[in-house]
Design a protein around this nucleic acid. Structure first.
Length: 196
DNA sequence: CTGCCGATGCCCT
DNA sequence: GGGCATCGGCAGC
């Protein structure tokens, strides 16, 4: 059973807003997945975004209609899943809590530890079986299933991970204190101390 | 626990 | 040819 469907037009909004609201939503692919605990936003004006320099073959899905998947290969080894928002913008799904069909995830990952099954965009795609076969697919029908949910804790914003440009933009959203995120907010910033 | 490093494909200039 | 929206292993606190 799944929760309430996402409202129509949910993805046709600025990516940062969608990214925050996606935390807590349940994501499954072929029935495998769970509640999202970590996301990142990217948009057309963002130097760190694949869309920054305009449409190319790789990022074609990012410039298509909202509500589709954008999947790309990272570092030649891993797949990363994005949910497309307004043209040229998308939300990277970085981590979720493994809840549905853990056996499938463990088999694909070759691991057992629930904390490591889906903690990171590449790991998550491996666990859920996402490849470029999903690039461009609509999100409101199989193999995808997305439903509203409530985060298991407060949602906090922090800098994105692994970037070389626009490193300060606070467009990573995660459940504070979740054991399933790829990386917690560093103590120095978690306390609300001065930023740089 | 933290941090460095290499692997490895491919897009884009 | 340069540069990655990453990950796992291993070294060293």
């Amino acid at each position: 059973m799944t929760g309430p469907a996402l409202p129509a037009g949910f993805f046709d909004r600025p990516a940062a807003l969608v990214a925050r609201e996606l935390v807590g939503c349940d994501l499954r692919i072929h029935g495998v997945g769970g509640p999202i605990v970590e996301t990142e936003a990217y948009d057309r004006t963002d130097p760190a975004s694949h869309s920054f320099a305009g449409p190319t073959r790789r990022n074609a899905s990012m410039f298509g209609p909202a509500g589709h998947a954008y999947v790309y290969r990272s570092y030649g080894l891993h797949w990363c899943l994005n949910l497309v928002c307004q043209p040229g913008s998308a939300v990277l799904i970085r981590a979720l809590e493994p809840r549905h069909d853990l056996a499938a995830m463990a088999a694909r990952r070759g691991l057992d530890d629930p904390r490591r099954l889906c903690a990171g965009p590449g790991r998550l795609c491996q666990a859920l079986g996402v490849t470029d076969a999903e690039d461009g697919l609509l999100l409101d029908r199989p193999p995808f299933a997305l439903s509203l949910g409530t985060p298991d804790g407060s949602v906090v914003a922090d800098r994105r991970i692994g970037l070389t440009r626009a490193v300060e933009t606070p467009w990573r959203f995660l459940v504070a204190g979740s054991r399933f995120v790829s990386r917690p907010v560093p103590r120095a910033r978690a306390k609300g101390r001065a930023d740089a």
